[in-house]
Simulated scan of single mutants.
Amino acid sequence: MTNAAAANRTAERADSRAIGAGRGLAWLLVITGAAGLLASWVITLDKFKLLEDPNFTPACSLNPIVSCGNVMKSEQAAAFGFPNPMLGLGTYAVVVALGAGLLAGARYRRWYWLGLNAGTLFGVGFCTWLMIQSLYEINALCLWCCLAWIATLVMFWYTTSHNVRHGVIPAPAALRTFFDEFTWVLPVLHTGIIGMLVLTRWWDFWTS
């Protein structure tokens, strides 16, 4: 049987049963979801204060570069017509609830795991767009936004790893083996790339 055929059979078996997860992934979803939820909550509160008082300065506005206020006032901060963190309040809460369910022994069907994977992939894409906008258009960083970025990419990579290893996403044996042993490499590398972009974007400021 070819690797592709074996992967498809594994996916078919995953379709017919509910799949749980280890406590490691469950806790990771709870923690990263809570981190994203905290960031969204703080930004939402500061956004309300900014609407009440245009001269309000958020606590995380530390200098011309690390300036949450400048990010909140930008057009990109309401990409869908409402403040971005309001989207986070709903989506990160779902992740926390899902992780808590796994801790309690819940098991989910393949379509549910694929939905989580699709949602976290959208989150990574949206966070990447926001990061590019912050670095090259808004020219400012929001520390709470950075926390949400990191939380989202970590939950994406570990959800993807779980789905590949359990046959939810068909994949060759070599890729399953890689995710078994080296899942941690991907979020570390992803975070490192973001860190290097931030460092090089304002190198003169950081080193002055």
Rank of each mutant, 00 (worst) to 15 (best):
T152H: 08
C60L: 12
G90H: 01
P58W: 03
A148P: 07
N8S: 14
A148Q: 01
P83N: 09
P83K: 02
T10V: 15
F178S: 01
I132M: 15
E137T: 14
G101R: 05
W41S: 15
L37Q: 07
V124F: 09
A14W: 01
G69S: 12
I193D: 07
I193L: 06
F156A: 03
N70K: 15
T44W: 08
L89F: 06
W206H: 03
D204F: 06
I19A: 07
R9D: 09
A77H: 15
R23D: 12
N63Q: 07
S161G: 13
A106V: 06
L130C: 10
G125F: 04
R17N: 14
N63E: 02
N8W: 15
T2N: 13
W113G: 04
G24Q: 10
F126W: 08
A148C: 06
T91A: 06
T91F: 14
F126T: 12
R13G: 03
F182P: 12
L197W: 09
C68W: 03
P172F: 01
H190A: 14
L143V: 07
F82H: 11
G99K: 02
N8Y: 13
Y136I: 09
L116M: 13
P187F: 11
L114R: 05
T183A: 15
D46N: 13
L141S: 01
G33N: 05
G115L: 06
C68K: 00
W27L: 15
L45V: 15
V71Q: 07
M196A: 15
L45R: 15
G123Q: 00
A11C: 13
A93C: 03
D204V: 10
T177H: 15
F48N: 13
A35E: 04
G192E: 08
W157K: 05
A77Y: 15
S161R: 01
I138F: 04
G195S: 11
V96K: 03
F205D: 03
C60Q: 10
G195W: 00
A26F: 11
L186Q: 02
A11T: 07
G20A: 12
G167V: 01
F156N: 05
G195Y: 00
L135I: 05
T183N: 14
G105R: 10
R165D: 09
P187S: 11
G119D: 01
F178M: 09
A4H: 10
G195L: 06
P170Y: 07
D15M: 12
Q76D: 09
V168H: 02
V71I: 11
Y158R: 10
G81R: 00
T57M: 15
T200L: 12
Y158C: 05
G115Y: 00
V154M: 04
W206Q: 13
G115E: 05
G125N: 11
A93V: 05
Y108W: 14
D180S: 14
I19W: 03
G22Q: 04
G90F: 14
H162Q: 05
F122D: 02
P85H: 01
S161T: 10
F156R: 00
G105H: 11
L130K: 00
V95G: 00
G167N: 04
T207F: 02
P58R: 02
F178W: 12
G119W: 02
A171N: 00
